[in-house]
Write a protein that binds this DNA or RNA. Structure first.
Lengths: 209, 209, 209, 209
DNA sequence: GATGAATGAGCATTCATTCAT
DNA sequence: CATGAATGAATGCTCATTCAT
C-alpha cells in the first residue's frame, strides 16, 4: 500500500503539469498562482516543474500555446469550405465554436490573456497573432466575399465581425466569471443558435432592410 | 504664517488615491500592482494609504465602486424614458454607452473584474449585482416590453441582450488588451453605430425572416 | 525593558550592515554567507538589507570597497615622501602596512577576493586595479628609482616587489586561515621587522654579492 | 561478445572524477561548484558520483588530498640530501617547487583551501598538518641547521621561512586570481630564480651585512 | 554498476503592513 | 495627519541527494 516515493513517467509529465497549471492559472491569475499548488495538483514536487519549464513565465506560455493554438487551425479549416451560402457558413462556424468551447477551457485562457496582457505584452501578441487576428481576419474575409456577392448588407466588414462574435465572447466570459458566483446560468449553445439567426435576420420585425 | 503653496485638502485624498490606484490596477492587475507605485502616483507616502483604506483589498473595492457604480444608475435612468420606440431606445443606450466609455476607464475595470473574479468572488459579485445584472436586467426588460408590443422578434430576451451588448464588450476588451500591443485600431463609436443598425435590421438582405 | 519593535537609525545602517557583512563574508565566503545571518548580526531584519543594497552581490562589492580602497591611498601617500633613502622608505612602508593591517581586516578581504575571483571577475578587477596594481606599481617605481641611484641591486624591479611584499601576504593569509585552526601563532609585526632587514641585507653572511 | 569500444575501467573512475572536480572546485569554489558540472566533465551521471564519494564534502577532501599530499613528501625528501651548503639547498628547493607548480594546480588548491578554511576547518587542518606545517617545518629546520653552522644570519628561523616562501605563494595566487582578469603576466620561474639570489644576498649594495 | 528523473530543504528576494518619528 | 524606515511572511528558484529502472 505504500506509495513509492518516486514515480517515473517522463513522457506524460509535461502534459500533466500543463493541465494542472491551466487550472491554477485560470483560477488565480498568473501572479497569484503558486507553483506549490500547481505542483501539488500535478502530483509532482516543486522541483520537478523546473525539469520541464525554465520558469513560471515559460510554463504560462506553454499553457496558453498548448490549450489554444492547436484548435485555431481546425476551426479555420472548417470554414474554408467554399460553396456554402453565407448564412450556412456562419451557422457552421458557430456550431464548431460551441463544440470547441465545450472541450477546451477557452474561456479560462481568454480570461488569462485579458488579465495578463499588461504584464506580458508578448503573450497578448501571440494570442492576437495566432488567435484573434486569424479569427477576425477569416470572418471578415468571408463577410467581404458575401458582400461582393450581394448576400450581406454594406458596412465595415470588420465591425460586422464584432457583431457576430462579440456575443459569444461575452457569453464565454460570463460563464467564466459570473456564473461561478451566482449569476443566472447561461446556455452557450442556445445563445449561439438564437444569436446567429437574430444577427442574420435582424431584431426588428416588419421593417424593410 | 505657514501657508504651503499647494496644500491638498484632506477631503480630496481618497479620490486622488483611488484615481492613482485605478491606473495601476488597470495596468498591472491586482496582484502585480505595487502599493509603492500607487502611493507615488497619488503623490503621497505609502503609509498614508492606510489612513484611508484598511488594506489593499479594500482599496481595490473602493476603486471598482467609485469608477463604475455611479455611472450605472445614470445610464439606467436615461433609458426609463418611456414612449420611445424600441429602436430609438437602443440607439439612445448605445450613444450614452459610448460617451461613458470615453470618460471612465470602464474597459480597465472590466478587465480587472474578469481577472480577479477567481481571487475575489465577492468583488465579482458586487460587479455582477451592481453592474452586469442591472444592465442585462434593464435591457432584457425593455426587450420583453418591445416583444409584447410586437416590435421585437420572438426568442429569449436575455439572449437577445447578449446579441446587443456582446459586441460592445468585445470592442472594449479589444481596445484594452490588443490595441496597445499592435492590434488594428478600433473605433468604438463606429462599432456602436453600425452594430445597432445591423442587429436591429439583420445582416442578410432580401430574405424573409 | 521591552525593546521597541522598530529602531530607526538610517544614517548608521549602511555602515552597520557592511560591518556585519564583512564578518560573515570573511567567515563563510560569498556563496555560503546567509543574508539571514548578516541581518541578525547587523541587528536588522532581512528586508532591511534591501533598503540599502540592491542584492547580495552589491552588498559584497560595498564591503570590499569600503574596507580597503580608502586605506590604499593613505598608504601610497605616505611613500611619496621623497628624500628618504630606499631602506628607510621600505621600513616606513612596512610599519604603515602593519598598522593598517591591525586596524582593518585586510586579511579577510584578501581572502574573499581570492576566493571569489572566479565567480566575480569584475570584483577581482577592482581589487587588482585599486589595490594590488597600485601597491605593486608604487613599490616597483620606488625600486627602479633606487636602482637608478645605485642603491638597489639589478634585476626586474617588479619581481623584487614580490620578494618584498610576498612574505607579508603569506603572513596575512596564514593568520586568516591557519592560526584559527591551531597553527602556531604568528606575529605580523615581528615578521615585518625581521623580513625588511633580511631582504635588504641578505640571508647569507660574508659572501660578496 | 559485448565489448564496448571505450569501456572505462571502474578503477579509473575515482581518479577521473577527482580530476574533473578539481577543475570545477578551482574555478568556482566549493559552494558554487555544481555536481552537475563535475559529473558532466567527468563524463558520468550525477548519480555515479555517489557510488564513489559519500557527498560533496568527501569529494572535496579527496580532491585536496590527491592533488597535493603525494607531492609534499617528494619535495621534502629531495631536501634531506645532506652535504649541500644552504644556498644550494634553497636553490634546489625552488627549482623543485617551480617544477611541481607547473605540473599540479597547486595554486588552485591553495586558493580553495584559503577560500573554504572557514567552512571546513578540518580541511584547513589537513592542509596545515600535511602541507604547510611540513613545508615550513622542514625549511625552518634547515635554516636552523645553517644558522648553527654560521651560514645564515641570526633571527627567528620561522620568520626567515616566510621571507623565503612568501613571494612564491604571492606569485602563485597572483597567477591564479589576477592574471586571468588582465593582470600583467608573471613568470614564476623567473620570480623563483631572482628571489632566491636576492633573499640570499640582500637587496642593498655595498653595505656590510 | 550506472543512470537521470524526482525530490524537498534551503535561500535570495519581494512587498503588504506597521509604527516611531 | 503624514511619513518612510523597518518588518517578516510568503514565494520563486536552486541544487545536493535519493532511488526506481
Amino acid at each position: 500500500m505504500k506509495q513509492p516515493k518516486f514515480q517515473r513517467r517522463a513522457e506524460d509529465r509535461p502534459r500533466e503539469i500543463c493541465a494542472a497549471a491551466l487550472e491554477v492559472f485560470a483560477e488565480k491569475g498568473f501572479a497569484s498562482a503558486k507553483l506549490d499548488e500547481i505542483a501539488k495538483r500535478a502530483g509532482v514536487s516543486k522541483g520537478t516543474l523546473y525539469l520541464y519549464f525554465a520558469d513560471k513565465e515559460q510554463l504560462f506560455r506553454a499553457v496558453i500555446r498548448d490549450a489554444v493554438v492547436p484548435n485555431v487551425e481546425r476551426l479555420r479549416a472548417a470554414l474554408i469550405q467554399a460553396g456554402l451560402p453565407f448564412g450556412d457558413l456562419v451557422r457552421l462556424f458557430f456550431s464548431n465554436f460551441v463544440e470547441v468551447t465545450a472541450r477546451v477551457p477557452i474561456g479560462a485562457v481568454a480570461k488569462m490573456v485579458i488579465s495578463e496582457s499588461g504584464n506580458f505584452p508578448e503573450l497578448a501578441k501571440v494570442w492576437h497573432d495566432e488567435v484573434v487576428s486569424k479569427a477576425i481576419g477569416t470572418m471578415t474575409a468571408l463577410i467581404e466575399m458575401a458582400q461582393a456577392k450581394g448576400e450581406v448588407r454594406a458596412g465595415d466588414a470588420r465591425l460586422h465581425t464584432f457583431s457576430l462574435l462579440g456575443p459569444m465572447l461575452m457569453g464565454i466570459l460570463y460563464r467564466q466569471t459570473l456564473e461561478p458566483i451566482g449569476g443566472e446560468p447561461l446556455d452557450l449553445g442556445e445563445l449561439a443558435k438564437q444569436h446567429v439567426e437574430t444577427v442574420l435576420d435582424g431584431l426588428l420585425i416588419g421593417q424593410p432592410a
